[in-house]
Design a binder for these strands. Structure first.
Lengths: 243, 243
DNA sequence: CGGCAACTTGACAATGCTCAACGCGGGTGG
DNA sequence: CCACCCGCGTTGAGCATTGTCAAGTTGCCG
């Protein structure tokens, strides 16, 4: 299988075979990390940039009263700490949700990658999409009621997992707990449970033992007000048109 | 008065006099924009990058049901659309909250700036801090009750305005309406009003006709769980220590 | 002085939270 | 191979925070 980072970046711009070779080489040596394990903690100064190859990880913070909030999901193909080059220390932690396979890429390796214009642009694009996603999450939590909030997140994950080849049709594996979901959408575990049941009851989704099927993607998107523009996937389509 | 962008960037790293000259030149020609006016709209492709010199602007989105959510405040010294170079079109709008003075910086000018290493690093730092701020807002809305949410925002603005010299002691001008605040913290106008009254009643703040006084900054920070680490201001202190 | 936008207030409704208990299932050790 | 245990999911009852609607009030600007 082609590695998820290459797959994601090609979604933005075509890469030369040499570009692809460099990326593939990075993905070659990875380590396994158990579920619920921190990769980097707030306050640390990471030496290398982490790349997720398998499983779900997340950025999160713990607020003073002890509760957690998840600020981003890191799925296969996602880079963790692009800030490492500039900022002195992490202002948040990164940890796994499910069991993961990750690679630590040394700084020198990253610099090497950035010297290749196509890769550099694609990585920049990827960083901007991450930021746009963060903005969309803010809107999601700020202005959508519980059911639409969860539905919106499920729509986003469908698109993101499709771009790295981890969705089959409109279904995918969602290896996280309802508690994790709750910490993501700013609700309670109990309430997320009820919301999921209602989404199941209305026939929008089927979710059993971590396997999600979106029965009618169009309907779910309409229901949640999902508009994929913030993922900026159209870039690829436009590029292909030109070819 | 020294222009706010220079002032902000110097907070990260010292700039040479030539660097400063370049930045000052940019700030020299600006235009006025009335309150409640869009600078760029979702879907557009901006030609130049905007810099706010005076007043408050914001990034925002409108959700399908017509409600607005504000995702960032742009205060003097803040750049608006660093994505312009990579992404095809805006996935959100930018508009003024109060009357503003802004400059449109052409792409060529930006490239020129990026050739100066100190400026390039400082701009990169600034972009990363913007992203970190976005993450903190997500946590704020996701996991803090109404009063702490508003209090946290007020603490952040204090720090940010202090770094561009727009706060006097622990007070500053907040030229936005309670409705704007509501669209920022994900609450209702009515509820924000009651929250502000309670903050006033407990003596934490004094707010009258757009002028905010934080009576006990330490107390307000403690109350709202504010930790400035995400603004990464310590960089400057560390630099100064070295000199 | 009039008008409009922003702010304030009250009564009521609803969404989402808390607490507490129970069921289910998969993994582990005896 | 079975029994136990623990994490996760599910359910119910009652409560709290926040939203809605609707009607003033204040204050600034022309």
């Amino acid at each position: 299988m082609i590695d998820p980072l290459t797959r994601k970046l090609e979604n933005f711009a075509p890469l030369s075979s040499e570009d692809r070779r460099i990326l593939a080489e990075i993905a070659s040596q990875s380590r396994r990390v158990a579920a619920r394990t921190d990769i980097i903690r707030e306050g640390e100064r990471p030496d290398d940039v982490h790349l997720v190859l398998e499983g779900f990880a997340c950025r999160y913070k713990i607020v003073p009263d002890g509760r957690r909030h998840i600020m981003a999901y890191l799925v296969p193909g996602d880079l963790c700490d692009s800030h490492a080059f500039i900022l002195k220390e992490m202002d948040h932690s990164i940890g796994t949700l499910s069991a993961c396979r990750v690679v630590g890429i040394p700084r020198g390796r990253i610099l090497e990658m950035l010297e290749r214009p196509a890769i550099a642009r694609a990585l920049w694009w990827s960083a901007l999409v991450d930021e746009a996603t963060l903005r969309e999450w803010l809107v999601n939590i700020g202005r959508r009621p519980a059911e639409q909030r969860v539905a919106h997140l499920l729509c986003e994950l469908l698109m993101r997992l499709q771009t790295v080849g981890l969705a089959s049709g409109d279904s995918y594996e969602l290896p996280i707990t309802q508690g994790d979901l709750a910490d993501t959408v700013g609700l309670t575990l109990v309430h997320v449970n009820r919301v999921l049941q209602r989404l199941r009851a209305t026939g929008l989704i089927t979710l059993r033992s971590r396997h999600l099927v979106i029965n009618d993607a169009q309907a779910l998107k309409a229901f949640s007000g999902f508009d994929a523009n913030y993922l900026h996937l159209a870039e690829n389509a436009k590029t292909e048109e030109r070819c």
